[in-house]
């Protein structure tokens, strides 16, 4: 009884999406609404399927709680979630992110003046970005204690190298002709830097900022597994898993996902505003 209904629901939603993407809309506004609606329908279908399957097949809630139960848990434990969010995101992630990206940016500008350092540091930076840096979490917890500074330290190290590598290659992005033009204007090093090379490097820098936004959240939460005061998203996840209170874990995950997406979204918005001249932004706007 259950199974055919679920399958029918799936096919109905899929057919609706197929029909939607094949339609041609005269006005661009309608087309944009369509582009928004299609993934939303898909996501809603997934949620409904999840709900139907967990309830219909009596999946033990320890394994996978239905979305409605998770939502109930979120609504009922806002203060705890808010405290965890404050500890992990507002304190550890944001401070680590700002310090890590900021220092990498400054270091990149400093080594940009020395080709020797560039050739030495860039391959190493590329190498280090491929390493499992998350492993330094236990060391940082040992050095900086249980509270948020140790998590911020992990975030700093994790965000440093992607930012460094991207900024250095971004600073090399302006072409010779453009730099020669700046020379004919008799502009100083700093003028060239601020008026030509930093704007030209912006797409690369934003790329690193986007990569780092997800890395930072991961770093902070995983670092909390190695020891925390009794607050924080990573702490909550690991203890509630131990107590098999899976709905709380999922509530925490939902908050993390929301925070991660919002963080990413904010950076994308800033990127659109700053690098409005870049082809990828312009073409996105045209369609």
């Amino acid at each position: 009884m259950m199974l055919p209904a679920v399958i029918a629901l799936w096919f109905a939603a899929w057919a609706l999406n197929e029909w939607l993407v094949r339609r041609r809309f005269a006005s661009p506004a309608l087309a944009r609404v369509r582009d928004l609606a299609v993934p939303v329908i898909f996501g809603a279908t997934l949620l409904m399927l999840w709900e139907a399957v967990t309830r219909g097949f009596d999946v033990p809630t320890v394994l996978l709680p239905p979305p409605s139960m998770i939502w109930e848990r979120i609504v009922n434990s806002v203060p705890i979630l808010w405290a965890d969010f404050q500890q992990t995101f507002l304190k550890a992630v944001l401070s680590g992110y700002v310090l890590g990206c900021g220092s990498a940016f400054l270091v990149a500008i400093a080594i940009d003046r020395s080709p020797f350092l560039q050739r030495g540091l860039l391959p190493l930076g590329n190498f280090v970005s491929a390493l499992p840096i998350i492993g330094i979490a236990p060391i940082m917890v040992m050095w900086f204690g249980f509270d948020w500074p140790s998590k911020a330290a992990v975030v700093i190290v994790m965000t440093f190298f992607p930012m460094l590598v991207n900024t250095v290659s971004g600073l090399a992005a302006s072409s010779h002709m453009e730099r020669d033009l700046m020379r004919t204007y008799a502009s100083s090093y700093w003028q060239t830097l601020f008026k030509l090379r930093l704007p030209a490097a912006a797409p690369f820098i934003f790329n690193a900022l986007k990569i780092n936004s997800t890395l930072a959240l991961i770093g902070a939460i995983v670092a909390e597994f190695f020891g925390t005061p009794i607050v924080g998203m990573g702490f909550r996840i690991s203890t509630e898993v131990g107590r098999l209170a899976v709905d709380m874990v999922w509530a925490e995950i939902a908050v993390a996902a929301l925070a991660g997406s919002a963080f990413y979204g904010v950076i994308v918005l800033i990127e659109r505003a700053v690098t409005f001249w870049h082809p990828s932004v312009r073409s996105a706007r045209a369609t």
Partner: peptide, 15 residues
């Protein structure tokens, strides 16, 4: 990918 999956890893393992 904005879901910090690494953070959820322990739960997936336990479940």
């Amino acid at each position: 990918q904005t879901v910090p999956i690494l953070a959820i890893a322990p739960m997936i393992i336990v479940v």
